[in-house]
Amino acid sequence: MPTPLLELRHLVKSFGGVLAVAGASLEVEEGRLLALIGPNGCGKTTLFNLVTGIERPEAGSIRLAGREIGGLPPQARARLGIGRTFQVPGVLAALSVRENLEVAATAAGRPRAEVAHALEQAGLGRFAERAAGTLPHGLQQRLELAMVLLQRPRLLLLDEPTAGLELGESLAVAARLRRLVAAEGIAALVVEHDLAFVRALGAEVAVMLRGRIAARGPYARVAADPDVRAAYLGSRA
């Protein structure tokens, strides 16, 4: 069996005695799209923070392509190919759209010529000289994703990419993500609340409950799991 791109083993992280991540284990294979769902406070964002290096785990291991990365700072993990978007788009508000992309390109060692291409691809050409913070939410998300893609990540972590978007927009995001994963061979882990979006992704689903990965499989099977239904999906499924 090939080594999974991301391999989390028994991760533990607590805040002030409260266990946020309680022995979570998860694997993400190369080129795989995986949705991570779970109720509020179940530890999804903390899990992301552990993978990107904002938080350090108290126990457990984080491997990227077989290499232990749990002790590396965020910038080192980014350079190894982990790209991340945030719930609140992490654009550099005072800088222009173009400069945001230039920063991302420079940091990733990509030629600045790629910036013009990224601007066009993201449909942000006519906003190039606007301060990023003045863009509407949806465009900021697009900019953030374009910045992350300039990094040429091997693993993409998306934290609620449809937060603040309308249904039509979020379905478009799902379609774009599917194309991206298929075309670039990137692995993507997507934290999402919006179950319509998760269904539209057509991806495998992992469910996080009380700091652990409680189930994983196709959406229909996971949604039928009695534990999952009781804890999270309830009557909405």
Partner: peptide, 14 residues
Amino acid sequence: RAVREDPLRAAHLG
């Protein structure tokens, strides 16, 4: 300037 604006975000860009 990226670090000035948001050090954490900058770190995530490498």
